[in-house]
Design a protein around this nucleic acid. Structure first.
Lengths: 182, 182
DNA sequence: GTCTATAATAGGATAGAC
DNA sequence: GTCTATCCTATTATAGAC
């Protein structure tokens, strides 16, 4: 998640949204000319955003959802997911791609995938909450609430240019999701 | 909050963000030609977004922050604020202008005002939480958490095209913010 | 106060050289 | 695989008629 072409695309999309991410910005960020971007992504900007979403999906599968569903002790699972979240959001200084791509034109283009990704995260959080001692209904409620807190903290962090709310929310995740101390 | 020119501008900005809100969209929504928009807003799109933010600021002062700081009983204050929030966000079907205008170019242009508006809301929520029986530190924490929950629920609602998370969060606000039942 | 017309620039996309 | 050059459209903004 650092310097591939797709990683640079992610960075532009998450900073500007779909409509705000012009080919000029995308080309500048990747170091490629516009025509070269079209060689790699014949479907144009839409395909670039799809590639960005796919890469984020992979990162989450490997670094957030994967750890949450692993065979480890629940506290350790959540702590590893928190590390993944902090890495992806750069400690609260970067926006969520799912959030910004659901605006404007992006809504019609990407909403089904975005909703599935939100749901996959929520389901993984619910699984670990059950493993942490909560009944299924409570686990489901806590999981949705956790997604809401992460997203809301990112919005507030961006709005005030202060990552503190995000850091507070994710550091609190183990205690928030798990019943017993671990 | 329904059919003035500025209200239509708000609707376009909150749906598309600053960069995605083209003059064509803004003109179409208002029923005015582009040149007429420039007559009303000589500063162009930037001034239109500033007018949108100012109107939202006024709506919040009248329908959310005002009720929260009123002399009524705390439960009633929160319930009135919830009505204001539900009206502004159309029961979770509309995005937050503060959220979407903090993206891309909008960040540099509007962040100070956006941060002040988030802070004003948080401070009003903290005031009513103190009136509802919480100590100042707890009230402050609950207030920031409430802003986070509202914003996060709106993000999730948009991402999955389902207003339920927003409705759940705002209906829970009185119990969330106030210590004693009222 | 709103319109038509227009200018200048930026955006999305393609053709063809290397 | 990347580039330069180009095309067409959309976008921002202004001038001037009514």
């Amino acid at each position: 998640m650092a310097d591939s072409v797709t990683d640079q695309l992610i960075d532009v999309f998450r900073s500007h949204g779909y409509e705000g991410a012009s080919l000029s910005l995308l080309a500048e960020a990747t170091g490629l000319k516009r025509a070269s971007l079209y060689y790699r992504f014949p479907g144009g900007k839409r395909e670039m955003a799809e590639a960005a979403l796919a890469e984020v999906n992979g990162f989450f599968a490997a670094n957030v959802v994967g750890p949450l569903l692993s065979a480890e002790e629940p506290g350790e699972r959540v702590r590893r997911a928190v590390q993944g979240l902090k890495a992806f959001y750069e400690d609260g200084r970067k926006s969520c791609l799912l959030d910004v791509l659901s605006l404007g034109e992006g809504a019609a283009l990407f909403r089904p995938l975005i909703c599935r990704m939100f749901t996959a995260l929520k389901d993984a959080l619910a699984t670990v909450a059950r493993a942490g001692g909560h009944d299924p209904a409570t686990a489901e409620r806590l999981a949705e609430e956790a997604v809401i807190r992460i997203q809301g903290a990112l919005v507030l962090a961006r709005g005030c240019d202060d990552p503190a709310p995000f850091l507070r929310v994710v550091e609190d995740l183990p205690a928030f999701l798990l019943r017993q101390a671990s």
